[in-house]
Computed example of a mutant assay.
Amino acid sequence: MWSPCASCNTTVPLISQGELITKTKEYSYTSFEELDALLMHVEGTVYCVDNQSNSQTPRLEVEVLRDQLAHRHIIDQIQHGTFESHLQPIIFLDSKETFGYEALLRSGASISPGDLFRTANRFGLHSKLDQRARAEAIKATFEAVAPHQKTFINFLPSTIYNPDYCLQHTFDIIDRYGLSPDRFIFEVVETEKVHDVDHLQHVFSTYKQRGMKVALDDVGAGFSTIDMLKRLEPDYVKIDRSYISFCDEDAEKRSFLKKVRALTNSMGITLLAEGIERLEEADVCRELGFDLAQGYFFGKPAPANKHTFEIA
């Protein structure tokens, strides 16, 4: 059975009332606002103590603690708040039938995904948030995605330190819901920022060994040497929306898309166009032989319960 590692167990404890301890003095406070005001007049290393539970925060530099206080609402959401997955449809370009969905994390506190992940990365909570996102996506698949359809789930390679160990939590949840592994496609985000290809190769291999598919997301001009594709062997490649937007009016974009289609086709890789918002863009991608498409033209992300299905 999986048990959380140090990274997934990382917490940022914040004490709303208690004692602020400095090297020379102790100060009582009854709110975060009072604590922040106190921190403006002290320096060095400090920590807080909860008088009722005797728990305390780690020793931190004043500015670090103030930074945590400034982001406390997002930190609390990451650690204790509710989340859900919104599903955006992915369609077959030739038949226009639904192939599956991409699961996108949304917070119950209406905090933007960008703010969530930036704050998580800033305070060492990125592994915990990434893990929660995968769990919500699997739950949404169980509740709202038909058995013959697929779910794309994003992940950050930097949050998975040891794939054989870290991903066991994901596999356990899939097993708990009784879902077939082949219903999931795990896509690495920020493809062009991947520096440790060997590590990503290990992550991909771990997913594949458990019967899942893998994808490269937001692929653009910095993509792809043939060598990188051969090493990673993705099942799917998703083309960045910047190359899709108004591709019908840009010959250079169409030339790039044509080359990508030829390369991925020769390697047996399924190609998906992201960010389609206009019929003309869909037509170009269809004519070039793209397999799948996603974008507001076909449907916006919506709560999982909007995609419920009936089993025949």
Rank of each mutant, 00 (worst) to 15 (best):
V203P: 00
Q68G: 11
D235H: 00
T159W: 01
R231V: 08
N162M: 08
H126Y: 02
L288H: 08
N54Q: 09
V12P: 01
T22K: 07
R118N: 10
P4I: 11
R241F: 15
N51D: 10
G124A: 01
Q201V: 00
K230I: 10
E190M: 07
V214T: 04
E136S: 02
P301N: 13
K96G: 00
E143S: 09
P301L: 14
L93Y: 09
T225S: 11
K238W: 00
E252P: 02
V260Y: 03
T141R: 04
L105Y: 03
D218M: 00
V145I: 06
A37I: 09
I153D: 01
S107E: 05
Q131C: 03
E34Y: 10
A215H: 01
F92Y: 15
N305Q: 14
I78R: 00
A215M: 08
Q88H: 12
S16E: 11
G220H: 02
L263Y: 10
S245F: 12
V260H: 07
D175F: 04
D240Q: 00
C8N: 09
H80K: 12
G268H: 10
T191E: 04
T11H: 15
Y29M: 08
K213E: 05
F152A: 01
C48H: 08
A262W: 11
D227R: 15
T151W: 05
L69I: 14
H199I: 08
R231T: 07
E274D: 07
S95V: 02
L216H: 04
Q201P: 03
S107M: 03
I74F: 08
R66D: 02
F83P: 07
C48L: 13
S127L: 03
G108E: 07
H169L: 14
I91D: 00
S28L: 15
Y236C: 03
L288W: 11
V260S: 03
I91H: 09
R59C: 08
F117N: 00
A221F: 07
K259N: 15
I21W: 03
Q52Y: 13
P181E: 12
V203S: 05
G114P: 02
L167D: 02
N9Y: 06
T30S: 10
V203H: 03
Q68K: 13
S158G: 05
Y161S: 13
Q56H: 11
P13G: 15
A282N: 08
Q88D: 07
H73S: 13
Q294K: 13
S205D: 10
T24R: 09
H307C: 15
E26A: 10
E274A: 06
S205R: 11
N162C: 12
D115M: 12
N305G: 14
K230P: 02
F83I: 09
K128Q: 13
G211V: 05
E84M: 12
L69A: 04
L60K: 12
T151N: 04
Q56N: 08
I173L: 15
Y165F: 06
I15K: 10
M1Q: 14
S127I: 01
K193T: 09
A109N: 03
V237W: 01
F32H: 12
M40D: 14
A251H: 13
L104E: 01
S158I: 03
P89N: 11
A144V: 02
L116R: 02
